[in-house]
Every structure is written in structure tokens, then in C-alpha cells.
Computed example of a mutant assay.
Amino acid sequence: MKPPVIELHRAALTYPGPPPVAALLPCDLTVRQGEFLTVVGPSGSGKSSFLNLIGLLDVPSQGRYLLDGVDTGQLNDADRSALRGRHIGFVFQAFHVLPHRTARENVETALVYQRVPRRERGERARTALDAVGLGNRTEALPTTLSGGERQRVAIARALVGQPSLVLCDEPTGNLDTATAAQVLDLLEELNAGGVTLIVITHDPAVSERGTRVLRIRDGVLGEPAEPAVLS
């Protein structure tokens, strides 16, 4: 049996001061392959700190974080970055696509640091774009794409490295209602195909798409939570 994708054991995150700020209080969490979690909470509640911890952008101040069975606290910075590149894909609210690179080239950037050969990078990028419905726009520049299409490029970039976990930070925050629904439908399809998703959101319409909802309030992570109650 594969280990859980995520295991938190009394993991906490405190930013140094003065004064020190306890952004995430000690918490336990297990996320298994194929789960779709949404994380809700008001502004300043600790959602971003949770994302930084799970995404290996910050190191727990106490406790343990295991990613795919690897104790991340035992790794140096280089090994932690390498683990993040292999196992985690990121999707952000602002898309973060390069405006002067084609959709394919944007997706390929996720493979550069994995030292994937150039020809294979192109093939894998095209496959990822096809998976998100952009197989006919591989050579399009982001300036010619809609907001929803740019977010699909970002999702393809997150998926191309075949990560065990995809983290989405307000992935529909810059989209209109209809386009947001299309992106959420895509995420559900990817999850149905086995992709493990954690989506940070303040939107009840997004949170209710998850099969499991967590809520953060004042740095305390808990479940279950009512998706519509975010404050």
C-alpha cells in the first residue's frame, strides 16, 4: 500500500519576530491519493501559511511533515526543492504565465529543472495541454487566450511533471462565474482521474466541489466544516 500523499504530525508554522507570529497552530492531517480537499477560512486565518507549509515553501517550526512517505524535515534546501519539483504542482489565482512564451513553452518550463530532454518536454507539454482541452492552442501566446484558457495553461503546467499533489490557490479568483465553473469542472475531471487536489478558497461555490472540506480560523485547522460558512 502506498503511503499517504500528506501526513502532518503536530506540524506548526511560526514566523520569527519580533514578535513571533504563530501562523499555523499544531495540527494533524492525512491526505490519501485521489482526495479532493478544499480549505476555507477568512482573510488572515492561516490559509496561505498552510499552503506554504504543504507546498514545501516553508519548513514546519515544530512537528513533522511527510510527503509521499518522505520526512521533509530531514532534507536540506536543495533536496526539499527537488522533492517539491517532482511531487507538487501549483496553480495560482494570477495564472503566472509568461506572456512572450507560447502555451506549450509555458508548460515546458515546469520540466526544465527536472532535466527532461527538450524533445520529451515538448511531447509531454502537448499531452498536458490536450488533457485540459487546449490541444489546438499549443502554439498560441497568452495574450491571445482568454482568462479561462490561461488558467488551463497553468493547470497543464502543474500537471505535466506528473505530481502526486496539485495545490490550487484561489484558482477561480480572476475568472467570471461561467469560466470559473468550467475550470472547476476540469479540476473535478482531473481528480476523477486520480489527481490529488487541495484547493484554497474563500468562495462557497468552490469549496462545495471538494469531497472533503477543512476550515482554518486563527491558525487552527479543523474538519469537518460547513462549506458555506467561511467567517
Rank of each mutant, 00 (worst) to 15 (best):
N106T: 14
A103I: 02
Y65K: 07
E108A: 09
G122K: 15
F92A: 03
T72F: 03
P117I: 14
L111V: 07
D71K: 03
A103W: 06
K47H: 00
H96I: 01
N52E: 13
G69K: 09
T109Q: 10
S48Q: 13
V97P: 08
D77V: 12
R104Q: 12
L83D: 07
F95G: 06
V59Q: 06
S43T: 14
Q93V: 13
L66E: 13
R115T: 13
G44I: 07
R64Y: 04
L67F: 00
V91C: 02
S45Q: 03
G41V: 03
R64L: 05
T72Y: 03
Q74H: 08
L83N: 11
Q93I: 04
F90T: 11
V70H: 13
E108G: 04
H100M: 12
E105K: 01
F92H: 11
R115W: 00
E105P: 02
L57E: 09
F50D: 02
I88Y: 11
F90H: 08
G46E: 05
H96F: 15
A82D: 10
H100I: 10
V116W: 05
G63F: 14
Q62L: 10
V112Q: 15
G44Y: 03
S43I: 12
L57R: 02
L57H: 06
R101C: 01
V59G: 01
F92Q: 02
L111E: 14
S61E: 12
D77W: 04
S49P: 02
G44N: 06
R121S: 00
L51M: 12
G85S: 06
R121Q: 13
S49Q: 06
T102V: 10
A94Y: 15
G46Q: 06
I88A: 05
Q74M: 08
L53I: 04
L75F: 07
F50Y: 04
P99W: 03
G85I: 00
Q74E: 12
S45M: 05
L51K: 00
S81A: 15
S81Q: 13
L75Y: 14
Y65L: 15
T102W: 14
L37Q: 07
R118K: 09
A94V: 13
H87K: 14
S81D: 12
P99M: 01
H87M: 10
Y113I: 09
L67C: 01
Q93H: 07
V39Q: 05
A103S: 12
F95Y: 15
E120S: 01
G89I: 00
L75M: 07
G73W: 02
V91S: 00
T109A: 07
Y113L: 15
F90N: 05
F90M: 09
F95S: 05
R119D: 13
P60S: 08
P99Q: 06
P42T: 05
G85K: 12
G63L: 04
A110F: 10
G89C: 03
V39C: 03
V116E: 13
D58G: 00
F90I: 02
L83Y: 09
A94C: 09
L56E: 13
P99V: 01
V112F: 07
S43Y: 05
Q93P: 09
I88D: 05
S49K: 04
